[in-house]
Amino acid sequence: MSTATLEPPAAHATPPGLGTGPANKKRQTDALLYLDDLRVTFDGYKALRGLSLTLSRGEMRAIIGPNGAGKTTMMDCITGKTRPDTGIALFDGTHDLLTLDEPAIADLGIGRKFQKPTVFESHTLSDNILLALKGPRAGFSSLFGWRNRVERGRIDALLETVGLLPHRDRPAADLSHGQKQWLEIGMLLAQDPKLLLVDEPVAGMTDAETAETANLLRRIAGEHAVVVVEHDMHFVRALECRVTCLHEGAVLAEGSIDAVSADPRVVEVYLGR
């Protein structure tokens, strides 16, 4: 099976020859996130081979795919952690993500939750939320400015949303794996981004918690665009959104969960040939 046949139709939506130069800045796309032909190589290993994807404002999208399909590498490219060798990544129609670094991309309104929950373990839950709150990130504003005078109520409301209010003064290190996932989602909400990238949010959660998380994400979508990477098919089904299946660094199939899971190519890569 050649990779060429795996190219999704979306890859041809842009006329060829569009660079990332100034002329490109003028082009408007109505998509919030526009990825075209991203290619990443690590020491000869091709992690992404021409990945293309578009995401509308407020859309929720689930990304599935076997291990090594390039799901996390894709997120790394969007958030500035990894620079692709070639390709286009536009945010909000105008911002070229490939020229920005992580803080600048975060500043544009892209929040990320990591596969392994990453919270500030030495800090209390309320401090974790405090540091994530949207607002100026400069040193002086944190030394003397508003971040030292945040209303308790604002933080508590966010902790309430993710169900962790009773633990507000405990260090984050004390939380269970699932609770850390929730805290990290709470931090994402505090960031109030336009786009949330959520990597495996329900790993280590009970069924009830998983259902709760799906509800939470559905509530968030609409106001924010959300990309969820997840293996748990029940959870993906519960999200009730479009699904994209990646395989070997490119899009294999895209559509409703039923259509994608019925796609013979998807079945083949999951079950082996």
Partner: peptide, 8 residues
């Protein structure tokens, strides 16, 4: 230097 996701 070694390259790759692990070292980055």
């Amino acid at each position: 230097a070694l390259k790759g996701r692990a070292v980055e």
